[in-house]
Computed example of a mutant assay.
Amino acid sequence: MKIIILDTSCGNLYSLKSTIKKIGFDSKITNNPNNILNANKIFLPGVGSVQSIMKKLKYDNLIKLIKNCKKDILGICLGMQILGKYSEENEGNKTLGILDYSTYLIKNQHLTIPHMGWNKVQNVQKSPLFKNINDNSYFYFSHSYAVNVNNYTISTSFYGKLFSAVIQKENFFGVQFHPEKSGINGIQLIKNFLEI
């Protein structure tokens, strides 16, 4: 199986690569369009700013390729947020526009922002991503922006209000948490994605 981790120059690319290795698969970190087109599974990781990830994808001529992607692709954290059409970050930025949602800044004076640490994830719809993972399992989050619950929401989490923890539309999947930092549940979720 050809597994590609998109080189977004941001995020724990090597941590993700090593988690995939633990499951028994090799993966390649690349922004080479031919490698991406020949992949069976694609990861779109992201940590940092929406501006820098969009700039990098544009520079590498990957925006159209991702939008037209027919292979299974999993956006992680910022990688999930940019599957939507808009982010409030840095006075507003257009994102990939694959899915019809926007990303908003978590605003709550009683809560610490960013939302960091373990939080419960509740399933709204059945998904192959959660095979052999119990409902209300804990995953590791680290984010200041979130996506409202919408038509593509598979699972939710709560931090001041409900937000989308996992989304899916056809071959596009997204998780707001970091599966590569989420212990046994995160490993199982990545394994499930690879086996879909």
Score class of each variant (00 low, 15 high):
L96E: 05
V124G: 02
N68R: 14
P114A: 07
N31I: 06
H115M: 00
N171R: 10
A165F: 15
Y152N: 11
G117D: 02
Y59K: 15
T19D: 03
N151I: 01
I23M: 11
F25W: 09
K71H: 08
S164E: 06
I167L: 15
D72L: 07
N38R: 09
C77N: 14
V124R: 03
N12M: 03
T103C: 15
H115F: 02
L194T: 01
G186Q: 12
K28A: 08
N32A: 06
I76M: 12
I36D: 06
L99I: 05
C77L: 14
T95K: 11
E180P: 11
V124D: 01
N148I: 00
I53G: 14
I23W: 10
I190W: 08
L65S: 08
L16R: 08
Y104N: 13
L105W: 08
N136R: 11
F173N: 05
I184F: 10
I113Y: 02
D26M: 07
N93D: 12
Y145R: 11
V50R: 05
H110R: 10
N171W: 06
W118F: 06
D72A: 01
K191C: 04
K58N: 14
S27C: 13
K17R: 13
K17E: 13
K56F: 10
Y159R: 01
I196L: 15
K131A: 07
G84T: 04
K120F: 05
L129R: 09
Q188R: 12
S157G: 03
K28M: 13
L105R: 15
K28C: 13
E88C: 00
S52W: 07
E91S: 15
T153K: 01
Y101G: 00
G92I: 13
Q125A: 02
T156V: 14
N108P: 01
E195M: 10
Y86E: 13
M80D: 10
L62D: 12
V47D: 07
V149D: 10
T19Y: 02
W118A: 03
T103W: 04
Q51I: 14
T156H: 02
L194S: 03
I190T: 11
I82L: 04
M54L: 11
V166G: 09
I20N: 09
L44R: 01
H143P: 01
S18V: 02
N38I: 03
T153C: 00
K2C: 03
S52E: 15
G11V: 07
K58E: 15
L6R: 06
K94G: 10
G174V: 01
D135R: 09
G117H: 01
K67M: 12
Y140I: 08
Y159P: 00
I113C: 03
T19K: 07
S127F: 00
I23Y: 11
I133V: 11
N93W: 11
L99Y: 02
K169E: 15
I53M: 15
L129S: 08
P179D: 12
G186V: 08
G11L: 08
N32R: 04
S155R: 01
L194E: 02
Q81H: 10
P33G: 12
E170T: 09
V166L: 09
N61R: 09
F173E: 05
T153N: 02
N61D: 15
N93E: 15
E170A: 12
I73A: 06
L78R: 03
F173K: 06
T95G: 13
S27A: 14
